[in-house]
Design a protein around this nucleic acid. Structure first.
Length: 494
DNA sequence: AGTTATTCAGTTGGGGCCAA
DNA sequence: TTGGCCCCAACTGAATAACT
């Protein structure tokens, strides 16, 4: 049974909350507090500032970064219109955000951390974040702050009970353990190398995703039939033929973007014409399939569920869950596209690459199944759907409030351009391209990894990230519990 | 009657803001 | 600076409407 002394309680300003008296103890006593690892003491100026919502504007040269840009699944900031807000330049304060800076969150998603992938001039961070002054062992420390042992400690230090938790600077009192075995410096190096590898791969995924986007954009821009676009307001017949009167698809922006695709020199096809059959995913409600058992862990005979919320914007599943049900549910097949069709973040999609055992999605994921299982075509269509999402066209094609939905009946009006094979292959190769890495050691891994990243597609990069993350996690856990670690890179092979 | 599409509403986590 | 209230975004399961 755990106990607390009177002194302990007094130290805590007489707080009796059990969570505050709990301390996380680990076998490894060789640790430093985060504050001991900083280059210098944390200053108030390291904290961001609030500009107030009155300074939010729709377009600007200056931006305000919210804590939501820091996400558990990524080492890099995640950008969307929620996380990066244009603000009036007069309210801006310079934070000189540079490539490699570490940013930690102290409010709401407490302890979440990212590293900046490049310089961000004209960007400031909100009052919920600190910029950490760390140069020595930066990647080692970064990987530990992302690890659950750090979060557990912080969780116990920060009072619960309020809607938004405030960590103040309590993260500075969390422990970062160090290895104790003979070749401890090599182990530290190993952790740093793996962490850097993860960051590089994330950067590479974004780079390739951007490349796909610009290939599509340029191909459409440079190969139009007619030269100019002319906007005209909708006619009554447009309403009746499309059976829609909502403004989105009649706006000038939409018309112009749609013109770009429909005016493409080689023409376009609908999803159906390409041979896809669209249908909704399995309806999981009790009245439809009876009671199910939900689990976050893999279990024998359970279905794997990939829901739209699990998909990243770059086109892979970040996580999955499992469901036990006695019925024969509608499973996904090789070559299928899952497309998240509902809500504010709709439009994310993935392609199923391998024949998977008992994998399903839910009713919010529309599946596009090709009659003849054509992976290459599926990948191309998926990439083009990404283009539409990034151009905000998915939202405009969709109907309804609360984020809306791109119901199946609207899929027929979505044009997919008939790109020449060479262009298509270029796009497909960026998304998936087999790449091999030879077995490595500490001294040559970074070079081998660099070469792997260069040729690998987004899909392969993600696969490699998942393996590396798993390994890194084991290594960090072993450091926490003071177990001996062997340096190896065989985990990268299947 | 069974299947599919649409709408509704609950849940959860997180952001804004104010006052102490 | 911090605690806490208010409110909203995002997502989900389920009910209901609309089609075969």
């Amino acid at each position: 049974m755990a106990s607390s002394s009177f002194n302990q309680i007094q130290e805590l300003r007489s707080i009796f909350a059990p969570s505050q008296l709990e301390v996380l103890d680990t076998p490894n006593k060789n640790y430093k507090l985060l504050k001991e690892l900083l280059d210098r003491k944390l200053k108030p100026s390291d904290k961001g500032l609030e500009v107030g919502s009155s300074n939010y504007i729709s377009k600007s040269s200056h931006f305000f970064i919210r804590a939501k840009a820091l996400q558990n699944y990524s080492f890099l900031p995640f950008w969307n219109k929620e996380t990066k807000i244009p603000i009036s330049p007069t309210s801006y304060t310079e934070h000189s955000l540079k490539k490699g800076d570490l940013i930690i969150s102290k409010d709401s998603n407490i302890g979440e951390i990212i590293i900046l992938d490049k310089d961000y001039p004209n960007h400031m961070i909100s009052g919920a974040m600190y910029k950490l002054p760390i140069t020595k062992l930066k990647y080692y420390i970064l990987s530990f702050i992302k690890h659950e042992s750090f979060r557990k400690q912080l969780d116990l230090l920060v009072p619960k009970g309020s809607t938004i938790r405030h960590a103040k600077t309590l993260f500075l009192d969390c422990r970062i353990p160090f290895p104790t075995q003979k070749n401890k410096n090599e182990i530290i190096n190993y952790v740093e190398i793996l962490t850097k590898s993860l960051i590089n791969k994330e950067i590479e995924i974004r780079k390739k995703s951007n490349e796909i986007f610009s290939i599509i954009k340029n191909e459409l821009l440079n190969n139009g039939k007619k030269k100019t676009f002319q906007f005209s307001n909708p006619k009554l017949t447009d309403f009746s033929s499309l059976k829609r009167i909502n403004a989105g698809i009649f706006s000038e922006y939409f018309k112009q973007e749609e013109f770009l695709i429909k005016n493409y020199i080689y023409g376009f096809n609908s999803i159906k014409e390409l041979g896809f059959l669209a249908s909704r995913g399995q309806n999981l409600q009790v009245s439809c399939i009876g009671k199910s058992i939900y689990s976050s862990e893999k279990k024998n005979n359970f279905y794997t569920v990939i829901k739209p919320k699990h998909l990243s914007v770059y086109g892979f599943a970040m996580s999955e869950e499992y469901l036990g049900n006695k019925n024969n549910l509608k499973t996904l097949k090789k070559g299928d596209i899952i497309f998240g069709a509902e809500g504010f973040e709709k439009g994310r999609s993935i392609v199923i690459f391998k024949d998977r055992d008992k994998t399903i999605t839910n009713i919010h994921g529309i599946t596009l199944n090709h009659k003849k299982e054509n992976i290459k075509l599926s990948v191309f269509v998926k990439c083009f759907l990404d283009y539409l999402r990034r151009k905000n066209l998915i939202d405009l094609y969709a109907v309804g409030g609360n984020g809306g939905s791109l119901a199946m009946k609207y899929w027929d009006i979505i044009p997919i351009p008939k790109f020449p094979k060479a262009i298509k292959d270029k796009i497909i190769k960026l998304y998936t391209n087999n790449s091999n890495i030879s077995n490595s050691n500490l001294s040559n891994f970074e070079k081998n990894d660099f070469n792997f990243n260069k040729s690998a597609g987004i899909f392969e990069l993600d696969k490699s990230i998942k393996k590396t993350k798993l390994k890194l996690n084991y290594v960090l856990s072993d450091i926490v519990s003071n177990k001996k670690i062997n340096i190896d890179f065989t985990f990268l092979f299947d």
